[in-house]
Design a binder for these strands. Structure first.
Ligand SMILES: [Zn+2]
Ligand SMILES: [Zn+2]
Length: 144
DNA sequence: CGTAACGTACCC
DNA sequence: GGGTACGTTACG
């Protein structure tokens, strides 16, 4: 079993022992150096979001904090999955056709790790926008 | 500086 | 929920 990590029902694709392309290897070794990169804009936006009314309010914030910590940094392609090993774009998928506006990698090249999620299933951050809306609309009950 | 791509918001 | 658009980030 060349695959220590595995998986909850992962696609049994033809994942042979990849000799780790030089590009991938070098990229991995290089990225090892840089760790915490300064994010001026990120910091600014973070403050804005907090001002919007996203302060700690419940024990849920604990998990949320952890999620945010990892979700903050932009992840990179693992470079080991089949899509990552793809060399050229298909040129026929929606992402390829809308790359001008969509700015997304070819669907056939999208890394499996990035496809899934930042983590193994955390709080539904999908309602981040709705949560804020509800937060403001659900206040009167307690205040008034 | 230019490009590729990730993350998220927005549309249905 | 899925697809698309945009802003932003990472790298050559
Ligand atoms: Zn494609
Ligand atoms: Zn990958």
């Amino acid at each position: 079993m060349p695959r220590p990590k595995g998986g909850m029902g992962l696609a049994p694709e033809n994942v042979y022992e990849f000799p780790a392309d030089m590009e991938e290897a070098q990229s991995l070794q290089l990225q090892r150096k840089c760790i915490e990169t300064t994010s001026p804009l990120s910091k600014y936006i973070e403050a804005e979001h907090q001002e919007a009314g996203l302060f700690s309010l419940s024990p849920l914030d604990a998990s949320l904090e952890a999620t945010l910590d990892l979700q903050k940094k932009r992840r990179k392609k693992c470079g080991a999955c089949t899509p990552c090993l793809r060399k050229e774009n298909c040129g026929t998928c929606a992402n390829c056709l809308n790359r001008k506006t969509g700015k997304q990698i070819c669907k056939l090249r999208k890394c499996e790790q990035l496809k899934k999620s930042a983590f193994h299933g955390n709080v539904h951050r999908t309602s981040s926008r709705e949560a804020q809306k509800q937060f403001f609309f659900c206040l009167p009950e307690s205040v008034c």
